[in-house]
Amino acid sequence: MPLRHTLLATLVAAAWGFNFVVIHIGIGDFPPLLFSALRFTLAAVPLIFFVRKPDVPWSIILGIGGMLGVVKFSLLFIGMDTGLSAGLASLVLQTQAFFTIILAALLLGERPTGGQLAGMFVAFLGIALVASTVGGDLSALGFALAIAAALAWACSNLIMKKAGPVDMLSLLVWVSVIPPIPLFALSFMFEGQEAITAAFLNLRLEGVGATVYIAFVATIFGFAVWGKLINLYGAGKVAPYSLLVPIFGMTFSALLLGEEFGPLRLLAAALVITGLAINQMSGRNPTALKPAE
Results as ranks from 00 to 15, higher is better:
L266W: 13
M67K: 01
G83F: 05
F216G: 04
P165T: 09
L232Q: 12
T274A: 15
L205W: 05
G222V: 08
V238E: 05
V166C: 05
R204T: 15
M168R: 06
P246A: 10
W153Y: 13
R111I: 13
L11F: 13
A195Y: 02
L8C: 11
L84F: 15
P291D: 12
T100A: 15
I25Y: 13
M120H: 00
G126Y: 07
T41H: 09
A128C: 04
P46Y: 07
N231D: 14
D137Y: 06
P286S: 04
G109C: 04
F223T: 07
A218E: 09
W174R: 01
S170F: 00
N202M: 05
F18H: 03
G17T: 12
F18P: 01
G207K: 03
T6Q: 06
A86W: 05
S176V: 08
F40A: 07
P54D: 12
S176C: 14
P263Y: 10
I60L: 15
G69Q: 11
S36W: 04
E110L: 07
Q193P: 00
K290R: 01
V225K: 04
L201V: 06
G87F: 14
F261Q: 02
A123T: 12
P57V: 11
D137R: 14
G234I: 10
S59Y: 09
R52M: 08
T41K: 09
T197K: 10
G115H: 14
L84V: 14
I27V: 15
N279G: 09
G26Q: 05
I230S: 05
G275F: 05
I127A: 05
P54Y: 14
T251E: 02
P2W: 01
T251F: 12
A105F: 15
P286F: 10
V12W: 12
I159T: 13
F30T: 00
A118T: 15
A86P: 00
I27R: 10
A149Y: 00
Q116W: 08
W174Y: 00
L8Q: 12
M80G: 11
V173K: 06
V175P: 02
V225P: 03
T133C: 01
G119I: 08
F121M: 12
I159S: 13
G65D: 03
I25W: 14
I214F: 03
V45I: 14
A199E: 02
I48K: 06
A150R: 05
A131F: 03
